[in-house]
């Protein structure tokens, strides 16, 4: 069963700085001692990140990709689970 945290929408955590150039996103979490090196998201990751930033839900994210919907959905859930675990995004309805 999908939890609310996995169905979106989500928000980019306010501690994350990020830039989107061409087909990639580069991001870094802003936290002391501020020496973290940035992380790069290419292609699919960059598309997902940008769509998440625009407030798309899981169902909406799936429509961005071609292929077997269930497989696409699983891939997106993996991505979202990963970035949620890293504190890079959070549920949009959190206060």
């Amino acid at each position: 069963m999908e939890t609310i945290g996995r169905t979106g929408p989500w928000v980019i955590d306010e501690s994350v700085a990020w830039v989107h150039h061409d087909d990639r996103v580069v991001l870094v979490k802003l936290a002391p001692p501020f020496t973290a090196l940035p992380t790069r998201l290419d292609a699919t990751g960059a598309i997902l990140w940008s769509a998440i930033a625009q407030g798309e839900t899981l169902d909406e994210l799936v429509t961005n990709f071609e292929g077997d919907p269930d497989e696409v959905r699983r891939g997106i859930i993996d991505f979202v689970t990963n970035v949620l675990a890293q504190g890079l995004i959070g549920p949009a309805d959190r206060s």
Partner: peptide, 13 residues
């Protein structure tokens, strides 16, 4: 993954 930054990306971040 750790990024190889372009100068523009790095400077903005």
């Amino acid at each position: 993954m750790t990024a190889e930054l372009t100068l523009a990306e790095a400077t903005h971040l």
